[in-house]
């Protein structure tokens, strides 16, 4: 389980680090922690809101008979949620009732500062620029770059490898074949204080550098 541990903050730092390496800022606003899963080595920066309380209220018949806590937000590994971003699951009104749907974010996703995200799914290796709004039930596939100040309308599906921007968002280009290649694998870029992570690449180094 990757919930932030409830122990008292003995060493005063910006981040609380969990056993699986998640770094959660003390100044983040997280509600409904039971409904949030963090994959490990994920960073939640200051003033980030994670609305885990907005979980699915539908009765799920469970096979084991035990009461399963519904997941509202699940975030993968090495994902960075920058300051001031709001992650809230999307909802749909059906027969006069509000139903929330779980929001999934993949691995190595970078969410820039001051974003509002209500997508249904964000796949891995996605880079989201600052001040972006992602509408309810939008689906973002792998290797997508969302430029700054973009508004992705509701229900939009962004195919893998696109660059989107504008209000409303439209596909403005494609990421190159080398998207996300660079920091790990055979090509070592790091060292010497160099920025050793690339957009869409493995964010492990970035996560490590955040203290």
């Amino acid at each position: 389980m990757s919930r932030p541990t409830a122990r008292k903050a003995a060493p005063k730092g910006e981040y609380i680090e969990t056993d699986s390496g998640n770094k959660v800022s003390r100044r983040s606003a997280i509600t409904g922690t039971a409904n949030i899963t963090l994959g490990g080595r994920t960073v939640i920066m200051a003033e980030v809101q994670l609305r885990g309380d907005l979980h699915s209220t539908r009765v799920v018949p469970s096979s084991t008979g035990k009461d399963v806590t519904p997941t509202a937000i699940s975030i993968g590994r090495c994902t960075v949620i920058s300051t001031g971003s709001v992650i809230r699951p999307p909802y749909r009104i059906s027969r006069g009732q509000i139903h929330y749907y779980p929001l999934k974010i993949g691995d190595n996703v970078f969410v820039g500062p001051n974003c509002t995200i209500s997508a249904i799914q964000i796949a891995s290796h996605v880079h989201i620029g600052a001040n972006t709004v992602i509408g309810p039930f939008a689906m973002i596939k792998e290797n997508v770059k969302i430029l700054e100040n973009t508004v992705v309308p509701a229900n939009m599906i962004i195919t893998a490898g696109s660059v989107v921007g504008g209000r409303p968002a439209r596909v403005v280009g494609e990421v190159g074949e080398g998207w996300g290649v660079g920091s790990t694998g055979g090509v070592g870029v790091g060292g010497g204080g160099e920025k050793n992570w690339v957009e869409g690449g493995d964010l492990r180094e970035l996560v490590r550098s955040i203290k």
Binding site: E177, G178, V181, V187
Partner: peptide, 10 residues
């Protein structure tokens, strides 16, 4: 990829 053949300058 050119990334694997060309030195990266920054």
């Amino acid at each position: 990829l050119a990334l694997n053949h060309i030195p990266r300058l920054s």
